[in-house]
Design a protein around this nucleic acid. Structure first.
Length: 259
DNA sequence: ATGGTAGACCTTCTA
């Protein structure tokens, strides 16, 4: 099974590009972030034509996540627990009914900039909620995956110029510690474990020629539960997508798991 | 030190 995550930076502005990649890469399951549209504006038919079942958690203008699967989906969740006061659409999860079912959570973790504001506090609280949810899922001792745009640079090796990120929410000690604590529950980072380029970048800013200068960072991650880690075979960063026509600022990351 | 780009949308916000 091929499982992809991709922050598409508006699914409608980039529909042809996204569909072209899906036809070429043929992921069985995919989580998308930054749809930037409400559920009704998601181009559902275009993906259904490619054979996908679709669960969308959309929002006007900002955020928005989707889960697409060639297998049937069950037990769908929109939003993390403790979300009563949270109006931002950043999490969608479902049980993927492949031969050996696997639960997949797609997430768009808050950016959190600038630090020292309520945005950074929201990021850390969202990470606390994700940690609690992962703890609950782990108790079932089943295969699951948390994939998406984590907006966390885990280590200095994951940035072209780590010094330039010292004041950024993506590289704050608190953000990195929360990501590390999540992994320390027993989750495995797919790209670090079976990736050909463990510290390959997944994001290059549109500004200041970041792509041309390879000023990238690695912030799109796939985490696997122990039972999913047992099935982990490969992880690829589709770097060349960034060089394409009208690209997203993120590229797809694709993990291969035994069926 | 600053500004640089992209998308949604009403004017600035988010990234």
């Amino acid at each position: 099974m091929r499982l992809a995550t991709w922050n598409v930076n508006s699914v409608n502005a980039r529909l042809e590009t996204v569909l072209g990649w899906f036809e070429a890469a043929q992921p069985d399951v995919a989580v998308l972030q930054e749809l930037k549209c409400v559920d009704e504006k998601f181009p559902r038919e275009a993906f259904e034509r490619l054979g996908y079942n679709i669960e969308v958690h959309g929002q006007k203008t900002y955020n928005g996540v989707a889960l697409l699967s060639k297998y049937p989906l069950d037990d769908v969740r929109r939003g993390l627990p403790e979300g009563e006061d949270d109006d931002q659409a950043r999490y969608v999860e479902a049980l993927v009914l492949s031969a050996r079912p696997i639960r997949v959570g797609g997430l768009y973790l808050p950016n959190g900039n600038p630090i020292g504001t309520e945005k950074f506090a929201y990021k850390l609280n969202w990470m606390r909620r994700l940690h609690a949810h992962a703890t609950n899922l782990l108790a079932y001792e089943e295969a699951f995956v948390l994939a998406g745009d984590f907006n966390v640079i885990p280590e200095p090796e994951d940035a072209d110029n780590p010094q330039s990120w010292l004041g950024d929410a993506l590289f704050q000690p608190e953000s990195r510690a929360a990501f590390r604590a999540l992994k320390n529950l027993g989750l495995t980072e797919a790209n670090l474990t079976v990736g050909a380029e463990p510290h390959g970048y997944t994001f290059w800013d549109y500004q200041a020629g970041a792509w041309q200068r390879n000023h990238g960072i690695r912030i799109d991650h796939i985490l696997t539960s122990p039972q999913a880690t047992d099935r982990l075979q490969a992880c690829e960063i589709h770097r060349n997508v960034r060089a394409g026509e009208k690209p997203s600022d993120h590229v797809p990351v694709v993990a291969t798991l035994a069926d």
